[in-house]
């Protein structure tokens, strides 16, 4: 079973890396960029075949390690 965990910074948390990327995009002349926030994507393969069990495992993974919930939000998706 394939899944994806997406970790993003909470709103209001300063993201200097995102700001630097935003600046670079603007200097490249890419039109219409209002702002950029950088996050992380984890593509995970699970042994489980049960969707609910997989989601629970992914949630545990995100809470325990993948995200620092002080500053980050995460989203769990089971893809197939």
């Amino acid at each position: 079973m394939k899944a994806r965990v997406t970790v993003t910074l909470k709103s209001g948390i300063l993201d200097p890396q995102g700001k630097a990327i935003e600046g670079a995009l603007k200097s490249l002349g890419v039109d219409g960029i209002a702002s950029v926030r950088q996050g992380k994507v984890f593509d995970i393969e699970l042994a489980a075949t049960d969707k609910a069990k997989a989601e629970a495992a992914l949630k545990a993974a995100a809470d325990k390690l993948l995200a620092n919930t002080v500053i980050e939000n995460y989203r769990v998706e089971v893809l197939s």
Binding site: I13, L14, P16, A20, N68, V70, I71
Partner: peptide, 10 residues
Amino acid sequence: PGVLMRNAGL
């Protein structure tokens, strides 16, 4: 408590 973020000056 808290977190250590990237230096403001990068």
